[in-house]
């Protein structure tokens, strides 16, 4: 059973009255624990694919199946629950909540899940803070952190709910190459130890080459 499966997925956007196809029939499946890159130039449909997998957008045609659930069959509440329990998100511009410190930002999804005791929550957050190497920054606000540190917080936040799938939209785009590499290393490490499925988009070749599998997109279609 594949955690992610796309079957002939098409996605059109409306630009005024003009229908612009973003995906023209994309099909692929991701194995559990895979570390996959979606590559391609700007406008090739990378982000659209990630949005559909992340259940923040819906396909115009075709099926998107996440953890055996066809997303087109789910209502808003079920999609929200799927995002919370099955998916983890890492954003290009980190998207941390500015008023919350490192610890609170990481704990945030656990508070939404409501299935852990405060003690369990603390243990879980502490573990991931240590895992991303921010033990000494737990009381810092995002504005007091460097870009790399912020992205580590975002990774911890994405992982803290122990999701089956972690999605990352150009996670290194806003980082220098050295920091970007350390983030990729961290993701790879987690992938190999926890067997979490990673799927991320990038147009950076040096990063692309480190992935086990590359799905190359162009003009809304898979090249190879």
């Amino acid at each position: 059973m594949h955690p992610i499966e796309l079957v002939n997925v098409k996605k059109d956007y409306l630009l005024g009255n003009v229908r612009v196809p973003a995906l023209k029939g994309v099909s692929f499946a991701i194995e559990p624990g895979e570390f996959t890159v979606i590559a391609g130039p700007s406008g090739s449909g990378k982000t659209t694919v990630l949005n559909l997998i992340g259940c923040v957008d819906t396909a115009t045609e075709g099926d998107v199946v996440i953890a055996s659930k066809k997303t087109s069959d789910l209502n808003d509440r079920e999609l929200t629950s799927l995002r919370l329990n099955t998916l983890g998100f890492i954003f290009q511009s980190f998207n941390l909540i500015p008023v919350l410190d490192v610890y609170d930002n990481i704990e945030f999804p656990l508070l939404l899940k409501k299935d852990l005791t405060p003690k369990q929550r603390k243990e879980r957050v502490d573990y991931f803070i240590e895992r991303v190497g921010l033990k000494n920054h737990r009381k810092h606000r995002p504005s007091e952190l460097s870009g790399g540190q912020r992205q580590r917080v975002a990774i911890a936040r994405a992982l803290v709910t122990k999701p089956q799938i972690v999605l990352a939209d150009e996670p290194t785009a806003n980082l220098d190459s050295k920091t970007g590499q350390s983030i990729i290393d961290l993701m790879k490490e987690i992938n190999s130890i926890d067997k979490t499925t990673f799927i991320f988009s990038t147009h950076d070749y040096s990063i692309m080459n480190q992935a086990r599998r590359i799905i190359q997109l162009q003009d809304g279609m898979i090249l190879k």
Binding site: T80, L84, N95, L112, A158, T161
Partner: peptide, 16 residues
Amino acid sequence: QQEIGTMRAIGAPKGF
């Protein structure tokens, strides 16, 4: 908007 979108994306329900 982005912050609210982020909260929604990482699983915050509308009621939150």
